[in-house]
Design a protein around this nucleic acid. Structure first.
Lengths: 154, 154
DNA sequence: TCCAATTAGTGGCATATGCCACTTTTGCCG
DNA sequence: CGGCAAAAGTGGCATATGCCACTAATTGGA
């Protein structure tokens, strides 16, 4: 069964996805390096910008990210003065975010760098192929995956 | 330009990939949870198994992972007694790895759990679709991406 | 009106990944 | 053969992510 296993694992959807993510992540990170932002940070700043002073939960959901992970990831951006937070007026449990002027400027700077990477990537794989790939990935992200609850025997 | 930007970012190949990776990663992690392994660790153990006492560099390359990152990721597995390392006989710079008996047992246990996740995922997206997606991801992983060296002006 | 259940975040802990600066071994070349 | 460049890892530092246990603020009843 070893051979079957070996062939099987190369079919692990998760491993394949992570492998590609590491590769592409480094490429975008390199492209963004002059701005001092990582790909993840860039994406987060962008998401904050397009939202209307979004709540943390809203961003976490949009990025399919754990709420606490979002909090952690946000810290360096707040520390560096790119993002500021404030409590919602009507519900003090909710914390909203917005870009500072510096954050906006940094984002504008990063967008140019991002555009170059994006262009190069699409030059290589083809705009259409890239769009198809993203569509497939979005479909995966939206799947209602959940392991059966370990089959409660009763 | 804000609207164009907003539409544009939803087209960020990197962000889309990471989003899907977070989603799928949690799914496989949940499935593997009973074994105490994470998806990444499972993949690493598997890769070590199929290799012939592979060198660290070989594994890092196969997984498109930074060599130092591999070293870090390996530590908990060594600490827990699943993997052991030893120096290559002919080149003492090279460190090779192999599974311990416990590591092999743990991997066998995890493979069953992994199979269930894999099956469920493919039931939802279709075996063929999944294969196409993996092929596309492998193509991305194998791209010769590199930012033009910041255009040396001379 | 007051308390139980729910909702939104925070902090701590652990793994996942990368980059950079070093250290140890090899290989190669004059 | 001696010394320098390349190869393979290691360790430190920083971000990326998740889970869990808690805290604070709300919401719904009874």
């Amino acid at each position: 069964m070893t051979e079957a296993q070996q062939a099987g694992f190369s079919r692990c959807n998760n491993a394949t996805l992570r492998r590609a993510a590491r590769r592409l992540g480094r490429f975008y990170d390199d492209a963004l390096a002059p701005s001092g932002l990582k790909g993840t940070q860039f994406g987060l700043l962008f998401q904050i910008q397009v939202g209307s002073e979004p709540a943390m939960g809203a961003i976490a959901e949009a990025l399919i990210m754990d709420l606490s992970a979002l909090g952690h990831t946000l810290k360096p951006l707040i520390r560096d003065g790119y993002v500021e937070t404030f409590a919602d007026k009507d519900d003090r449990r909710i914390k909203r975010m917005r870009l500072t002027p510096q954050g906006q400027a940094k984002l504008d700077e990063a967008i140019k760098l991002w555009g170059a990477a994006q262009r190069q990537f699409e030059d290589m794989v083809g705009t259409e192929q890239a769009a198809k790939l993203r569509a497939a990935l979005d479909a995966v992200a939206d799947l209602d995956l959940e392991m059966p609850p370990a089959a409660p025997s009763s």
